[in-house]
Structures are given as C-alpha cells and as structure tokens.
C-alpha cells in the first residue's frame, strides 16, 4: 500500500519536473524561465522526496529526504531572487511582450537624485 502511494507521488513529481524543464526551454526571456523552472522543478523534486519518505517510513533514510525538502524550499526561492536581481541590474531586457516595468522607472528616479546630490 505505502509502495503504491509512494510510486504515485514520485510519478507526479517527475511529471512536474519535466514540465518545468519544458518551460525553461520554451518561455521567451530569463525572468519567465526563472518562474517556470523554479516553481515546477522545486515542486517536482519535493514530490519525489515525499514519495521516498512514504516508501521508507521515518528511518534515517526518510529523515534525509525530509532535510532535502526543507533545504530546497528554503534555497530555491533565494537563488531565484538573486539571479533575477542580478539579471535586472546587469541590464538584461525583458521580453518584447512585457507590459510594464516599474523597477526600471524607479531605478532611473534613484539615479537622478544621486546625480543631483553629487552636483550640489
């Protein structure tokens, strides 16, 4: 019984892994790729590790998988945030279908105030 549930969870996880990687290949610019890849691959690997926990029970094997889940939940958004900020600051543009970019507008404002302060 637990083996069946574990295999089902693992299959769901692998399907989401595959879809996330498909999004990484298909979507137009780095920010959209980051979204699809981070969400889907994190959820997929979580599903696989959850299946491992269900199949093995709470032995040291299961606890290792649990620590893996906690680690990827904490680590994946942090890495995504760092890459997104670095990409925007190194002036990689958004895709052409983008609607609005408030961050760029605010950054220009900040730069202008800095220039005025330097001139004074």
């Amino acid at each position: 019984m637990t083996d069946t549930i574990g295999i089902i969870l693992i299959c769901i996880g692998i399907a989401f892994d595959f879809l996330g990687v498909l999004g990484l290949v298909r979507l137009p610019d780095v920010y959209n790729r980051l979204q699809a890849a981070t969400k889907c691959v994190t959820f997929g690997s979580m599903g696989i590790l959850l299946g491992v926990i269900v199949m093995q029970g709470f032995t040291s094997f299961g606890f290792k998988a649990l620590i893996g889940i906690v680690f990827i939940i904490l680590a994946a958004p942090t890495a995504a945030h760092a890459v997104a900020r670095a990409a925007h600051r190194s002036k990689i543009p958004l895709a052409k279908i983008s609607v609005v970019d408030k961050y760029e507008e605010d950054k220009e404002l900040i730069d202008e105030t800095l220039k005025e302060e330097v001139e004074v």
């Binding site: 996880g13 890849a37 691959v41 093995q56 893996g68 670095a86």
Partner: peptide, 23 residues
C-alpha cells in the same frame, strides 16, 4: 543569466535523481 538559471535548476533535478537511485 540563462546559463546560471539552468545550472541552478540542474542541481535540484540531480537531488531528485539521487533520491530515485537510492530507492
């Protein structure tokens, strides 16, 4: 940035792969 994202995602994928191998 695309390459950095891809390598990061590869790390999480490998975590799932090793979980399956250990099973």
């Amino acid at each position: 940035a695309d390459r950095i994202v891809s390598v990061d995602i590869l790390g999480v994928l490998i975590l799932g792969l090793t979980a399956l191998l250990s099973i």
